[in-house]
């Protein structure tokens, strides 16, 4: 891969992304273990269980959140000269907010039940998905503003 190819990640970004994926892999393993423990532990009397869909969303989005935030904080999210990040993150804000608001409204109106028969339903997974998308985009835009402040005055 040519270093002069400005459509790719540079060497520092590649290193950072490798580290990020490594962390994401470990977080994924941790989530699998946590899920198995939760399934056993929370199924006992007196505890509130979490349904399969919500547990799956947690197991998927927590590693994605960790990896994405790591990439963004280490400026390894966008390729050299790539400019599409703002559009994607804008979409994340919209979809995240939509997901959270719709779910909260549906729970408040009673059309879906948050906890049924001692088990948290799909609502938790939907809210967490929206929150993760929102969180990633917030970190992105904050980092963008910080970078603008840091690199604003060209030297």
């Amino acid at each position: 891969m040519s270093m002069m190819n400005n459509k790719n990640f540079d060497e520092r970004q590649i290193l950072a992304r490798g580290k990020g994926f490594q962390i994401g892999f470990l977080v994924s393993l941790g989530m699998i273990v946590a899920d198995l423990l939760a399934e056993d532990f929370l199924s006992n009397d007196g505890f509130i269980g979490i349904n399969v869909y919500s547990r799956a969303m947690l197991c998927i989005w927590i590693p994605i959140l960790v990896v994405s935030v790591y990439f963004i904080l280490n400026d390894a999210y966008e390729k050299i000269n790539e400019t599409g990040g703002k559009a994607l993150m804008g979409m994340f804000v919209f979809v995240g907010l939509f997901e959270i608001i719709v779910t909260v409204v549906r729970v408040a109106s009673g059309s879906i039940i948050f906890v049924e028969n001692g088990v948290v339903g799909d609502a938790l997974g939907q809210i967490f998905t929206g929150a993760a998308m929102l969180g990633i985009s917030v970190v992105y835009f904050v980092k963008l503003a910080l970078n603008k402040k840091t690199f604003g005055d060209e030297e």
Binding site: S2, M3, M4, N5, N6, D10, E11, R12, Q13, D75, I80, N81, N147, T150, F151, E154, E155
Partner: peptide
């Protein structure tokens, strides 16, 4: 040369050149 210009000439991101 600005940092951006040097980074572009070398083929890395500006953040990398700054680092």
């Amino acid at each position: 040369m600005t940092q951006t210009a040097l980074a572009k000439a070398v083929g890395v991101s500006r953040q990398t050149m700054n680092a």
